[in-house]
Design a protein around this nucleic acid. Structure first.
Length: 412
DNA sequence: TCTGGGGTCCTAGGACCC
DNA sequence: TCTGGGGTCCTAGGACCC
């Protein structure tokens, strides 16, 4: 009998911060925002004492937050005010102005991520990564993995993670990934939930459709229009009806999902498909009026993707850009080269070509650069960047960007 | 008050080749 | 002069997830 666990760290980003600032325990704290944070200032101001001694009233509050951005994680006390992840900072500030705001410390989060995952792998080796704070674990072949439906092993993992990191997690164990994912939410935080095949009707069917991993806001809205609100409502429809309304692949999948059927394996290894860097500006920028600023950001994005590729040992063939207009519409353009590259100049030139194919009259709020069709750098025949060599990546050397004049282009 | 940054996968049309 | 399918690759957009 297959036994699959889904493990989800409780309020991971916030919990990592609480380890550093235990004085914030029990308070509403939100993580997110980024650049505008006062965190560094705080540390400098109280450089004379351990961070755990910084007084609570010295921390920055959500009510004082200025800028764009969304909440990455909210502590449970903050959630009581209706604040949750993916919520805009400004909206969160209205709901809970007294919440403390801290920026994401990616290095620290990654460190704890590696740490809790290695604890799990020592106990149960078949682990699938689902981002920094989540994994699927195959209990089926683990000695003792079937005892009490997986509860015994789940408890051991929970305890081992807590002892190694001081962090809590919630675990769902079920016949497959789909149900395990839903089950891990049943007893949050620091909970375990065991679901068997026979429980689907009682425990899964009453849930709202949105709880199915794969049904998002758009599908939820469409389901609601069809008067389907619970997973049981979907299960009550015929496969044919769902296919007629949602298409062959999605409709059939939805039917299976509602009946708790899912035979996807736990995948322990995977290769990246693309790497990208993007940034939302502090204020909307215009291609002509803010040309220099945009040019510098663009160059920086190209440089950073190139660094990411090199650091991880990949090259790519498809170079693309993404931009978001002030009205939140998104446009993408990409171009496939005849050779693989990780060279910042090559990426910059190809991305620059893409930029010329998109409307730049409207103000922009976001710019991104993506490299796709990746291959391992050592698995691909080495190709020199085509002559002439890539120009240096200074803004003044790339006058073709953002409505550069033809004369400037010729000069470049 | 809008709405981050990093991804994956799917769809659909057109090019191009056999 | 009209009429094929099938397969693969490229591109743009969009849904969804963490």
């Amino acid at each position: 009998m297959r036994r699959i666990a889904h493990l989800d760290m409780d309020a991971f980003f916030a919990s990592v911060e609480l380890l550093r600032y235990p004085q914030l325990k029990g308070l509403p704290v939100v993580i997110g925002g980024g650049r505008r944070s006062v965190d560094d200032l705080l540390l400098r101001r109280f450089a004379d004492r351990p961070v755990s001694q910084i007084p609570v009233d010295a921390f920055p509050l959500l009510r004082d937050y200025v800028g764009r951005g969304v909440i990455t994680t909210a502590t449970y006390p903050a959630r009581q005010f209706g604040v949750g992840s993916a919520m805009g900072m400004m909206k969160a500030a209205r709901l809970c102005p007294q919440a403390i705001v801290l920026p994401v410390d990616f290095d620290e989060v990654r460190r704890y991520s590696r740490s809790f995952k290695s604890v799990i792998r020592e106990i149960a080796p078949v682990v699938e990564d689902r981002g920094v704070d989540e994994v699927y674990i195959d209990f089926t072949e683990v000695p003792g993995g079937q005892r009490e439906g997986g509860r015994v092993l789940a408890r051991l993992i929970q305890k081992s993670i807590f002892e190694a990191t001081g962090l809590t997690c919630s675990i769902g164990v079920a016949p497959n990934k789909l149900i395990a994912k839903m089950a891990s939410e049943f007893n949050k935080p620091n909970g375990i939930s065991i679901v068997h095949e026979a429980d689907v009707q009682a425990k899964i069917w009453p849930l709202p459709v949105r709880k199915i991993n794969g049904i998002g806001p758009k599908s939820e809205e469409k389901l609601h229009k069809l008067h389907l609100h619970t997973i049981g409502d979907i299960a009550a429809q015929s496969r044919e009806w769902l296919v007629d309304n949602f298409g062959q692949a999605y409709g059939a999948w939805m039917h299976d999902a509602a009946w708790g059927r899912d035979d996807r394996p736990v995948v322990t290894e995977s290769e990246p498909v693309s790497m990208s860097r993007e940034t939302t500006f502090d204020r909307d920028l215009h291609a002509v009026r803010d040309r220099a600023e945009l040019g510098a950001i663009f160059t920086d994005l190209c440089t950073r993707v190139a660094e990411d590729l090199r650091r991880k040992g990949y090259v790519g063939r498809t170079i693309g850009i993404k931009l978001r207009y002030d009205d939140f519409r998104t446009a993408t353009r990409d171009q496939t080269l005849d050779h693989y590259t990780a060279d910042p100049g090559t990426i910059r030139r190809a991305a620059g070509q893409c930029l010329k194919r998109v409307d730049l009259d409207q103000r922009l709020r976001l710019l991104g650069v993506r490299v796709g069709k990746l291959a391992k750098a050592d698995a691909v025949p080495a190709t020199a960047p085509e002559a002439p060599a890539a120009p240096p990546l200074a803004a003044e050397h790339t006058p073709d960007l953002f409505h550069g004049t033809q004369a400037a282009r010729d000069a470049g």
